[in-house]
């Protein structure tokens, strides 16, 4: 027994919590995905029926594509803005501090408030864009509107990550670069960006997995509409399970979500070398 490390007993609460609220539900969902259950009575095993139906379900396939599109679009919109604003906000000037606190306002609002706010703002008869494009009513642009609303909601959070990380970059690096005659852009590209590498990875994982499972904003903002234009996979699962009461089939969709989410975060970690977590600074 080593007395240097904490005893394994210390992990009991964390593991028990994980077992009860993550592992157990996941096992139940996997079991349910092989049953037919309408919420009444007891689940009846039906073999792989839910799974073969899932393979044939064009609506499910379409919602997977919508989810991926939402995911990629959210990342593409949020990352550059959050990165630039975050690095800018890392400066010590007073004006930046004041403006930053305004930028961070959406962080203080609940998801429901944000969704209802934008819904009212984009209402076609009484909103702010009467006579303009039907942001939530046109099936061709509704998904992009959702991307913008989600970005508006989450950019401040990621900006905060980048701000903190940019402040941790040692000033000596910039001083050395200045002596070497580096330009602002050069310093950003060759010092700030490499130093923020792991923050970019963390923020990207949060964004990608977050938008894979995003649900509440879309539920309130569009409920998957118009038609099925914004019905992403989590929403498809919810509607199948809690409007159609096909709990077995909804569980099969849930398993797909779990697998996609896990695979995605593992892939990003591997690809980015995040696991080695070596410091970028000399001397440490």
């Amino acid at each position: 027994m080593s007395s240097q490390r904490p005893s394994a007993w210390y992990a009991v609460p964390a593991f028990a919590f994980f077992a009860l609220f993550a592992a157990l539900p996941m096992i139940l969902v996997i079991y349910l995905s092989f049953t037919a259950w309408d919420g009444l009575g007891t689940p009846q095993l039906n073999g792989g029926e839910n799974w073969s139906r899932l393979l044939d379900d064009s609506e499910a396939r379409a919602s997977v594509w919508r989810t991926l599109l939402l995911m990629v679009m959210s990342w593409l919109v949020q990352t550059p803005i959050a990165l630039l604003v975050g690095v800018w906000a890392a400066g010590k000037q007073r004006s930046r501090a004041v403006l930053s606190s305004i930028f961070f306002l959406p962080l203080l609002l609940s998801t429901a408030a944000i969704a209802l706010l934008w819904q009212a703002l984009l209402e076609p008869n009484f909103g702010a864009f009467v006579g303009g494009p039907l942001f939530l009513g046109d099936p061709d642009i509704a998904l992009y509107t959702v991307v913008l609303v989600i970005s508006w909601q989450f950019i401040p959070f990621h900006t905060l990550l980048y701000q903190g990380a940019a402040r941790a970059v040692p000033p000596s690096l910039y001083e050395a670069a200045t002596l070497d005659g580096a330009t602002r852009v050069g310093k950003f590209l060759h010092i700030t960006l490499p130093q923020l590498r792991y923050t970019i990875v963390t923020s990207s994982v949060l964004m990608l997995v977050g938008s894979l499972t995003t649900f509440d904003t879309v539920l309130i903002l569009t409920n998957g509409g118009p038609g099925t234009a914004t019905r992403i996979l989590p929403l498809h699962m919810y509607i199948t399970g809690f409007s159609g009461f096909e709990m077995g089939y909804a569980s099969a969709i849930a398993v797909v979500l779990v697998v996609l989410g896990t695979a995605l975060s593992i892939a990003v970690m591997r690809w980015s070398g995040f696991r080695s977590m070596s410091s970028q600074q000399e001397g440490s």
Partner: peptide, 22 residues
């Protein structure tokens, strides 16, 4: 850390989970 030292905490975890469910 020896193998034994892991066993009891694991059982405890299981027990906590089961009690909570029950």
């Amino acid at each position: 850390m020896s193998r034994r030292s892991w066993v009891r905490p694991l059982i405890a975890m299981g027990l906590v989970a089961v009690t909570a469910v029950v």
